[in-house]
Amino acid sequence: MKENIIALHQKNIAKGAEHLFLDKGFNLTSISDISETSGYSRRTIYKYFESKEEILYYLIIEGLDHLVQSIGDAIDSEQNFLKRYEAICACMLFYYENYAISAQSVNRFQSNAPLNMTTSVERIFALGVKINEYLSIWIEQGKEEGILKESLDVMPTVYILSTNLNALFELVTTKGTYLFASLHMTKEQFLSYGYTMNLNSLLKEPTK
């Protein structure tokens, strides 16, 4: 019961902070700002989070937890290989659009910047490893089924595929309005084209 109450207060504080991080940026957001937005006193915020960084980590973990679960479900589904790819893309797009702070911040943990290895940071790294494991399983499945090129080196392919998809989502977010109008394409058509381009680099026989 106590754990549920703590979890509820943490979620409320983090949701208030999330809007500020998106609007003002993490560095320009203060604990006082979060207090005003969330309705919790500074003292109460520090009762549930040791620092502003821990609030950010909470939001990153929340998004990655959802992504791990959804990608795992996609990989384990009974759909054919290409349908699983479509499901993976949909999972990653949902994460990018609905857990924006998590998606925008997670690259920080893939850089060489030194981090204080708190329990939360370790959890973030562990979730990233799990996502890569799921994607590597999908690629191995494709190679075993004779759909993907046998020459593919699995882990580099995982990193490149993830990077390409994230870049595609960023392009749609920042320049989508202009692109869709100038190319006479809908968002769905543009994304589908991008997904196909990425996939064709992996397939033995490219699809149209």
Score class of each variant (00 low, 15 high):
137 I>D: 15
139 I>C: 04
116 N>C: 12
108 R>P: 09
134 Y>W: 14
103 A>W: 05
119 T>Q: 14
103 A>Q: 11
115 L>N: 03
119 T>R: 08
103 A>F: 08
123 R>K: 15
107 N>T: 15
101 I>W: 11
108 R>V: 02
143 K>H: 12
113 A>Y: 12
131 I>A: 03
110 Q>V: 11
111 S>G: 09
137 I>S: 14
114 P>V: 05
149 K>L: 01
127 L>C: 02
120 S>P: 02
145 E>L: 15
133 E>A: 06
110 Q>R: 13
119 T>N: 11
121 V>E: 02
115 L>Y: 10
104 Q>P: 09
135 L>K: 03
128 G>D: 04
129 V>K: 11
113 A>I: 07
126 A>N: 01
146 G>F: 12
123 R>W: 07
147 I>D: 08
114 P>Y: 05
127 L>N: 04
147 I>N: 08
120 S>K: 01
142 G>Q: 06
149 K>N: 00
133 E>Y: 13
114 P>H: 04
134 Y>H: 13
146 G>P: 07
123 R>N: 15
134 Y>P: 07
140 E>V: 08
148 L>C: 00
149 K>Y: 01
142 G>P: 04
116 N>R: 15
146 G>H: 09
125 F>Q: 09
126 A>V: 01
138 W>Y: 12
112 N>C: 12
137 I>K: 13
146 G>C: 14
141 Q>L: 06
133 E>V: 05
148 L>T: 00
114 P>L: 04
138 W>H: 14
104 Q>G: 06
136 S>N: 02
133 E>S: 07
104 Q>D: 13
148 L>G: 00
120 S>Y: 04
149 K>T: 00
103 A>K: 03
127 L>H: 10
136 S>M: 02
126 A>E: 03
115 L>A: 01
125 F>M: 09
118 T>M: 15
117 M>D: 03
150 E>W: 03
148 L>E: 01
106 V>P: 07
135 L>E: 07
117 M>H: 08
144 E>V: 07
124 I>C: 05
137 I>N: 15
106 V>G: 04
139 I>K: 03
144 E>C: 01
150 E>Y: 05
103 A>S: 12
148 L>I: 01
118 T>K: 11
129 V>A: 13
148 L>A: 00
147 I>C: 10
117 M>S: 06
103 A>Y: 06
108 R>Q: 09
117 M>F: 07
